[in-house]
Design a protein around this nucleic acid. Structure first.
Length: 230
DNA sequence: TGCCAGGCCGGGT
DNA sequence: ACCCGGCATGGC
């Protein structure tokens, strides 16, 4: 088991290095301030980022990118504004839930969340209707600078294609695989997920073939899968 | 034209 | 513990 962990550790590092070499510093998350990160994290659920940008712009142009302002808008009105991001009625409610959460938890002052332990905070975020594991971790990492790894569809696809795992494990299991075998620093976890998404968008969409341009190269057929569940 | 995108929820088995 | 249908727009 120790041996296994060492291999996983090495594989993760080599993947990360390949990304780093290709992309350098991506400067993620693409947003202005923590609240905007949170809003983006909800809006991008199963949705192309280009569509999210339109919605964010609409909110920005009306000065709604703060918890206080956003909580005052009526659901129906908000829904129309974020329409380009899809699932707009659901997401309008989710955004309001986020605002209520922030109001209850820290009176809308995001800085005040800094006193709360990361795991406790994660639990609180997960209790908000509309915030699941990926959204919670995105908020923790990119809005609140907590050292957590964010798992998404690209992560599973890339790890599977590059033989780190042979099937798709439950969210927390994959997250723990990285937590246990990769440096647990905000900087590296931030960059790692950013690299995964950038690579995923370019080279690892559902039907895109494996190609030479991918920073990880082609899948090597005779490399043994490290398997999941270590 | 149909498939896909940086998920999540509620209900069922 | 999984599996499903629903949610919705815009790009290719």
């Amino acid at each position: 088991m120790k041996r296994q962990a060492l291999r996983v550790n090495r594989r993760l590092k080599s993947i990360y290095s390949a990304f780093e070499k290709r992309y350098g510093d991506l400067g993620w998350w693409p947003a202005d301030g923590p609240f905007e990160v949170m809003v983006g994290a909800i809006l991008t659920q199963n949705t192309a980022w280009s569509n999210v940008e339109k919605a964010i712009s609409a909110l920005r142009s009306r000065g709604l990118l703060s918890p206080e302002a956003l909580s005052r808008v009526k659901d129906g009105e908000l829904a129309v504004l974020i329409r380009p991001a899809g699932y707009f009625r659901q997401k309008a409610r989710k955004l309001k839930n986020l605002c209520s959460f922030l109001e209850n938890e820290c009176s809308g002052e995001i800085k005040l969340l800094s006193g709360i332990d990361t795991d406790i905070l994660r639990g609180k975020l997960l209790s908000v209707n509309g915030i699941g594991p990926e959204t919670a971790d995105s908020i923790l990492l990119y809005a609140l600078c907590r050292p957590v790894f964010v798992v998404d569809a690209y992560t599973k696809r890339i790890f599977k294609r590059h033989l780190l795992i042979d099937k798709e494990p439950p969210y927390d299991e994959l997250r723990n695989l990285v937590h246990d075998n990769f440096p647990r620093t905000v900087e590296q976890l931030n960059a790692f997920h950013a690299y995964i998404v950038e690579t995923g968008k370019r080279y690892c969409r559902k039907k895109s073939p494996l190609c030479r341009e991918c920073p990880l190269g082609r899948m090597k057929r005779n490399v043994q899968c490290l398997a999941y569940g270590v």
